[in-house]
């Protein structure tokens, strides 16, 4: 099975390009939507919260999308899919940056003492901030050069994405007041994606 995969590794370049273009297009739509809603004053009564929620949710969605690639690759026997995983991960980082920016700028107007208090007093903010910090080394090493330089360590470093996922979900759970429906749904998806990675016997051989 495995050797078969290896043998069929021929990059369908056109398909990859098309898929990447689609990801760029699709991933920028939520930003475009926020801009249009913002300019037309349609972000609702609490526009800052709207932007914080939207960018946070999309960061989580792109994190989950990037986690789909590996199981999908094994399932379909299309190893070239790996080529879009980095792009999805970088879009997660882009939305996480927008999320953080809306928090420190729109929500707190760069009031650093208040931001520091908020982070250290409220566990959900602390967890969110930690998740963001952990994305920094991943974003910084998401290029060919870093992959070549770090080799095997690159893979271990990027395992951090699982921890980021757990922290992001915790951030969401703790932020919700009472109705946990949405965090539950995202957690189930995350759990399923983690389960899909678990392949007894061969999980060491490839990843």
């Amino acid at each position: 099975m495995l050797t078969l995969h290896r043998l069929s590794l021929k990059k369908p370049t056109v398909l990859i390009r098309l898929l990447k273009a689609m990801i760029w297009f699709g991933a920028s739509l939520p930003i475009l939507r926020l801009v249009i809603l913002g300019v037309t004053e349609n972000l609702g009564a609490n526009p800052i919260e709207f932007i914080e929620r939207s960018t946070g949710t999309w960061a989580l969605v792109f994190l989950l999308l990037s986690l789909i690639i590996t199981p999908l690759r094994h399932l379909t026997g299309q190893p070239w899919l790996i080529a879009v995983r980095r792009l999805l991960g970088l879009w997660m980082f882009a939305y996480a940056c927008l999320h953080l920016t809306s928090y420190v700028w729109l929500d707190y107007q760069f009031d650093w003492p208040d931001i520091a208090k908020d982070i250290f007093k409220h566990p959900y903010v602390l967890v969110g901030a930690s998740a963001f910090l952990l994305t920094l080394p991943l974003a910084a090493t998401s290029n060919e050069k870093a992959i070549r330089m770090l080799r095997q360590r690159w893979k271990s470093l990027h395992m951090l994405v699982y921890l980021i996922g757990v922290l992001a979900l915790l951030h969401y759970w703790w932020l919700v007041k009472k109705d946990v429906t949405e965090p539950v749904i995202y957690s189930i998806v995350f759990a399923m994606l983690m389960f899909a990675r678990w392949r007894p016997g061969i999980n060491k051989a490839s990843s």
Binding site: L43, N46, P47, L106, D114, K117, K121, H122, P123
Partner: peptide
Amino acid sequence: VDHPRWTQSSEKRIGAGLFAGR
């Protein structure tokens, strides 16, 4: 007296706009 989730020392006034701050 802070809430475990929300800062209670400042607030956002609804309708104040995107850049009004707290």
